[in-house]
Amino acid sequence: MSAYRFLVNGAPAEVDVPGMRRLLDVLREDLGLTGTKEGCGEGECGACSVLLDGQVVDSCLVPICQVEGRIVRTVEGLSLAARERGSLDTLQEAFLEHGAAQCGICTPGMLMAARAYLDAGGGPDEDPIREAIAGNLCRCTGYSKIVDAIAAVATPAD
């Protein structure tokens, strides 16, 4: 065991756990951030997606020793600024309005993949949006409303 330090949603975190513990387990069990979900534990479903230094990763495939000194962002940190105002951020709002979340279990991971896409300057075209979320399985929506929601946010305000 050794102590690993990193930033989670803007706040410093320190955990004293085995280095091979999955980032997913550190978030959910050691830090109590249960917004990140486990769907398969083998990098197939994307439910555990978080941002690691801005890149979307499956947190079930990341050992905590590789997170030392890095920046992690989870669904709980998606709307930190917005939540202080008691509301959702624009992406979450778009998901809500478009009906892009149904059972909600894929939603946190889906939001993180979408956030990485938008932060990288992704636009409203459908194909790149679909590619950006192809690592996130959803069994409820058929994806159409998710794509619509992301496109709505990517569209520059007129």
């Binding site: 917004g35 990140t36 669904v75 959702l88 979450q92 809500l96 979340a101």
Partner: peptide, 15 residues
């Protein structure tokens, strides 16, 4: 709007 939607979208919903 979906009633439990905000909780699902912020990670607050408890499964």
């Amino acid at each position: 709007l979906r009633r439990e939607g905000p909780a699902k979208l912020t990670g607050a919903a408890k499964y």
